[in-house]
C-alpha cells in the first residue's frame, strides 16, 4: 500500500524570514481585537451580567419570529429583551434584566418568567421552552471574577511550567503567544457578537492548553537542535526546527479540523459558540507557535549556551582533542 505523505520530505521553507512583518501583523491584530472588545463590547450572557434567559424552539417554523417576539415581550412591561437565535434559525434565547427589587424578592423574577412563557405559549402554538436561566447580579459578578482568575492563573501556571522545563525565555514566549491566542479569540467574539457565557471561558481555557501543544512541540525540537548544532545561527536553527516538525503540525491540525468540523456541523447547537471559539483558537495557536513563540527566542537571545553549560578553556581543548582524534 502506498502511504500518503501530506508534507514532502526535507522541506526547507524559510518561515522566519517573514518574522518581522508577521509579528507586526499579529501585534496589530491583537490591538484591533482589544479595540473591538472595548468599543463593541462582548455580548455577555446572563452568567456574567445577571438577568434571565429563556431558551425556546419554534418547532414547526423554519425561522423564529424574532422581530415579533421582541415587540410581544416588550409589551409585557418588563423592559426590552435581547433576542438572538443560536444554533438553528428557529431557536432563540430571550434575555431580560431582572425586575427591580428581585435581589430582595426572588418571587418577582418568577412572576416575570411565568408571564413571558405563558405569553409565548399563548401566541405561538409550536413553541417549546427549552430552559430558563436566572442569575442574580451578585452571583454573576462572582462568576465573572472567578472566570477571570481561572484564565489568569492558568496562563501563569503554564508559563511557569514551561520556564521550569525549558528556560525563562521559552516561558515568556509561551505567555506572549497565549495572550495573542486569547486576544484574537476574544476579538472574534466582539465581531460576531456570539453570546459570551461560562462555557466560553471553558473553551478559552481549553485552547490555552491545546494551542500550547504546538508551541511545546516546536520548543522541544528547538531545544534538541540547540544541543545538536551549537554553531548554527538562531534564525536558521528555528527554521530547521519548524520544518522538521512541519509534517506533524500539518497532520495534527488536520485531525483537529476534522473533529471540530464534525462537531460544528453535526454537534449540539447549544455549544456552537463554544466549538467555534476552540476551532479558531487552535488554528491561531498553530500560527502563533511558529510566528510568535519561535521568533521571541531570537529577540530574547536564546543561544545554545542556554542549555549547554559554558566550557572552561581546558574542557574545550580536551573536547577538540577528542573530536580531532
Amino acid at each position: 500500500m502506498k502511504l500518503v505523505k501530506l508534507v514532502p520530505d526535507d522541506t526547507n521553507i524559510h518561515f522566519l524570514k517573514w518574522r518581522i512583518p508577521f509579528f507586526i501583523v499579529s501585534g496589530l491584530l491583537v490591538l484591533a481585537s482589544w479595540a473591538l472588545v472595548l468599543t463593541e463590547g462582548l455580548n455577555f450572557g446572563v452568567d456574567f451580567v445577571g438577568g434571565q434567559m429563556i431558551r425556546a424552539t419554534f418547532e414547526r417554523s423554519a425561522t423564529a419570529p424574532v422581530g415579533g417576539l421582541r415587540s410581544e415581550v416588550t409589551a409585557l412591561g418588563y423592559g426590552e429583551p435581547i433576542i438572538q437565535t443560536y444554533g438553528k434559525p428557529n431557536q432563540v434565547s430571550i434575555r431580560m434584566k431582572l425586575p427591580k427589587g428581585a435581589d430582595h424578592d426572588p418571587a418577582l423574577a418568577d412572576t416575570m418568567t411565568r408571564t413571558i412563557t405563558a405569553d409565548l405559549k399563548a401566541k405561538h402554538a409550536d413553541v417549546r421552552i427549552d430552559g430558563v436561566d436566572s442569575v442574580s447580579g451578585k452571583v454573576s459578578k462572582e462568576l465573572g471574577w472567578t472566570a477571570f482568575k481561572a484564565l489568569g492563573f492558568a496562563a501563569i501556571a503554564i508559563s511557569i511550567y514551561i520556564w521550569v522545563r525549558f528556560e525563562w525565555q521559552f516561558g515568556v514566549g509561551a505567555l506572549v503567544s497565549l495572550v495573542h491566542d486569547v486576544s484574537l479569540t476574544l476579538g472574534m467574539f466582539a465581531v460576531t457578537q456570539i453570546e459570551f457565557d461560562l462555557n466560553i471561558v471553558a473553551a478559552l481555557l481549553t485552547l490555552i492548553g491545546y494551542s500550547l501543544n504546538d508551541t511545546i512541540v516546536v520548543y522541544d525540537r528547538i531545544r534538541e537542535n540547540l544541543k545538536k548544532y551549537r554553531r548554527m545561527p538562531m534564525p536558521e536553527l528555528l527554521d530547521l526546527s519548524v520544518n522538521e516538525t512541519l509534517a506533524r503540525t500539518v497532520m495534527t491540525s488536520l485531525m483537529m479540523l476534522i473533529t471540530l468540523t464534525a462537531l460544528l456541523l453535526l454537534g449540539p447547537q447549544v455549544i456552537f459558540g463554544f466549538t467555534a471559539a476552540i476551532t479558531l483558537g487552535i488554528f491561531v495557536g498553530t500560527y502563533s507557535s511558529i510566528y510568535m513563540a519561535a521568533p521571541i527566542l531570537i529577540w530574547l537571545r536564546v543561544t545554545s549556551g542556554s542549555f549547554v553549560p559554558n566550557e572552561s578553556a581546558q574542557d574545550r581543548q580536551e573536547r577538540l582533542a577528542r573530536e580531532g582524534a
Binding site: 481561572a150 492558568a154 501556571a157 503554564i158 511550567y161 522545563r165 481555557l205 492548553g209
Partner: peptide, 16 residues
C-alpha cells in the same frame, strides 16, 4: 509536556 500543560488548564477549570 503538552499533556501536563493541558492538565494544568483543566485543573484550574475544575477549581473555578
Amino acid at each position: 509536556d503538552a499533556n501536563i500543560t493541558n492538565i494544568i488548564a483543566a485543573v484550574l477549570m475544575f477549581l473555578f
